[in-house]
């Protein structure tokens, strides 16, 4: 059942990418969409803002409908979210994409660049979790 929900969630994410591509000719990459809310102007800023707001509303709605509890942080305090947020923002910024842009859309386009990027951030994430478990004990 859990796997089916994950699969269904993935299909919804895929359809979202389909609508952005066939509907608007845009690649659905959340790192650049989020950044663009800050640095784009006019129409280019507005549609990104709409996407961000709709993402929040969509997550809120499905969580309530399906009785999914609000997510909780795995590490307490302010230091970890700030460090991790800076790394995620800076890394996706210079690497031109994240799990949605490189993972869902880039691999979907069979782009060698995105396939490499996805393999690298997956490997880096796996190594980080392993190191954190040794260093922090969890």
């Amino acid at each position: 059942m859990e796997y089916l929900l994950s699969l269904a969630g993935g299909v919804l994410i895929g359809i979202a990418a389909l609508v952005m591509w066939l509907g608007l000719g845009r690649i659905m990459g959340m790192s650049s969409i989020t950044g663009g809310v800050i640095w784009e102007k006019g129409h280019e800023r507005i549609w990104r803002l709409w996407f961000v707001v709709a993402t929040i509303v969509g997550a809120f709605a499905v969580s309530h409908l399906m009785g999914i509890a609000p997510s909780e942080a795995i590490r307490s305090g302010w230091v970890w979210p700030v460090i991790a947020g800076l790394l995620v923002g800076f890394g996706t910024g210079i690497g031109s994409g994240c799990t949605s842009g490189h993972g869902v859309c880039g691999i979907g386009r069979l782009s060698p660049r995105s396939i490499i990027a996805t393999c690298v951030f997956m490997a880096s994430g796996i190594a980080t979790v392993a190191v954190m478990r040794i260093v922090m004990g969890g």
């Binding site: 269904a8 359809i15 979202a16 959340m30 996407f51 709709a54 993402t55 509303v57 969509g58």
Partner: peptide
Amino acid sequence: LVAVAGALFGAGLALG
């Protein structure tokens, strides 16, 4: 279209 895509994206992330 953007609103539909964003809502599907957020819903899919939470559901998955």
